[in-house]
């Protein structure tokens, strides 16, 4: 399984994602891929990591969406490749139109970093199959703009299609309907504000993030087996 971790100027969770993949995905061969890359053919999973791409100047993710690599991400997503956007990565995916909605300033207007309990609303996606329905998992957050918002129509669609994958147990940022993570309609693009790559070992305070990576690996294997 080939994994790409994108690197924009200002990405700062790229190495963390690389390490998380190395430590949790036994089949994963992971590479950091530069923002100028125009072709992502051959990758099975693309991780858009957290950080402050382009300093988050203008608006989080607003400049990164124009990076050459984002066209390739859109193409890959269209082709069904798994795309996982974490924190700034989620913001970039919404700016790029690969996921609906926007991430606004936290209601408290301050950056917040702490552990957070997420409820797994959809354990039947490629990213969450190793979790149980409504299981509470401990995945830390670290963001200033994680307040998810979308219009009523979009929300109704998200609900009807079962696209809301994670919700906060104790909403830290004012997100609409406690939304912490969503998938696209096809189910191959997931964006979430919390950081699963920071929850891969008890020494870091939680290992609940491990199963996200193993879920993706499982989905990929199943898909692979079916193709063969």
């Amino acid at each position: 399984m080939k994994v790409a971790v994108l690197v924009f100027p200002g990405s700062n969770c790229d190495f963390d994602c690389v390490h998380a993949v190395e430590e949790t995905m036994t089949d994963g061969a992971v590479e950091r891929v530069w923002h100028t890359t125009e072709d992502l053919t051959g990758y099975d999973l693309i991780i858009v990591p957290g950080g402050f791409s382009y300093g988050d100047y203008l608006r989080s993710g607003a400049i990164a969406r124009f990076a050459p690599v984002m066209n390739a991400v859109a193409k890959a997503a269209e082709a069904g490749v798994y795309v996982l956007g974490i924190c700034n990565g989620f913001q970039i995916l919404t700016e790029a139109g690969l996921l609906p909605g926007v991430l606004r300033r936290n209601t408290g207007m301050k950056f917040r970093c702490h552990s957070s309990m997420l409820r797994v609303a959809r354990p039947d996606t490629a990213f969450t199959s190793e979790y149980k329905q409504d299981e509470l998992i401990n995945i830390p957050i670290a963001h200033g703009e994680g307040n998810y918002y979308c219009d009523d129509e979009t929300l109704a669609k998200l609900q009807a299609n079962g696209q809301i994958v994670f919700t906060y147990d104790d909403n830290p940022n004012g997100s609409l309907n406690d939304i912490a993570g969503i998938v696209n309609e096809k189910g191959n693009v997931l964006g979430m504000m919390p950081h699963p790559e920071r929850a891969v070992s008890d020494l870091l305070g939680s290992s609940d993030g491990v199963r996200m990576f193993t879920s993706i690996m499982k989905a990929w294997r199943e898909r692979h087996a079916n193709v063969n």
Partner: peptide, 27 residues
């Protein structure tokens, strides 16, 4: 104070702010 700081980026922070000393893992 420290909730406003990202104390976990680099995914190596074993003891975050709030104890006697912070502890950072050597990967």
């Amino acid at each position: 104070v420290y909730r406003q700081y990202d104390s976990m980026v680099r995914a190596s922070t074993s003891v975050a702010p709030g104890s006697d000393a912070a502890v950072v893992l050597v990967r």
